[in-house]
């Protein structure tokens, strides 16, 4: 392992206030993820995986603790700068794909480049090539509603990696797919990442899925309870 982690979670604590009650969701999570690693975060439903992933990706603030991505302390980045930071360093894959229904496959995949200000021609060419390698070359003009779950998730993957982020976060990326499609998607995602030396932190409750990672972190009740290197 290279000595410098790309993602460091230091003593992350997250509490939610529910009226008078305070729910402790994450209890002092410490995790280092190194460049090029594929890490699976495995745990039962409700153990706090999503919460941790969101905090690690800067979508949510921890109650306590620090997140450092590629040397940048996220706590110090303001809400308005966070989007720009994410655009540069982070890709995100959602369980429910979260594509924009009014845009077609190509438009969805290249949306991050639109916000980055890349000229239309350049970004469309890049998007076309990427979607082709993901087996969607003949679906570029289709709207998400006209595509299967596996196809949608492939668009979502393309969108997450199109601007070459250093680290990709995926929350149950195959949660809604059958086992065959799940394997296809994971193989595609991981092989693409390997080519570019990118890092993946993936959340799942499925042992099979977790096994695709280099390392499996096991979580329960807001704590890390074990780690397995594959």
């Amino acid at each position: 392992m290279s000595p410098k982690p790309i993602l460091q979670a230091k003593n992350i604590i997250k509490k939610y206030r529910m009226g008078t009650q305070v729910v402790s969701v994450l209890n002092s999570i410490n995790l280092d993820v190194y460049p090029g690693e594929v890490v699976s975060l495995l745990g039962k439903s409700g153990c706090g995986k999503t919460t941790f992933l969101n905090i690690a990706a800067g979508l949510e603030r921890p109650t306590k603790g620090e997140i450092i991505i590629d040397g940048h302390l996220l706590n110090k980045i303001s809400e308005s700068k966070m989007s720009v930071f994410r655009r540069k360093y982070i890709g995100f894959v959602f369980q429910l794909y979260n594509l924009i229904p009014s845009m077609n496959a190509l438009e969805n995949a290249i949306l991050p480049l639109v916000f980055e200000g890349i000229p239309a021609r350049e970004r469309e060419q890049k998007g076309r090539e990427l979607l082709k390698t993901m087996g969607l070359g003949d679906r570029l003009g289709h709207k998400p509603s006209e595509m299967s779950g596996g196809q949608r998730q492939r668009i979502s993957l393309a969108r997450a990696i199109i601007n070459n982020p250093r680290i990709i976060f995926a929350d149950e990326p195959t949660g809604n797919l059958d086992s065959r499609t799940t394997k296809e998607i994971l193989d595609l995602l991981i092989s693409t990442l390997r080519k570019n030396g990118q890092t993946l932190l993936m959340v799942t409750h499925d042992q099979e899925v977790a096994r695709h990672g280099d390392r499996i972190i096991e979580m329960a009740d807001g704590k890390i309870i074990g780690e397995k290197v594959m």
Partner: peptide, 16 residues
Amino acid sequence: TREIGIMKVIGASFAD
């Protein structure tokens, strides 16, 4: 709302 959230996750700035 959802769409705005997605855009923010994938890098739309406040200004955008």
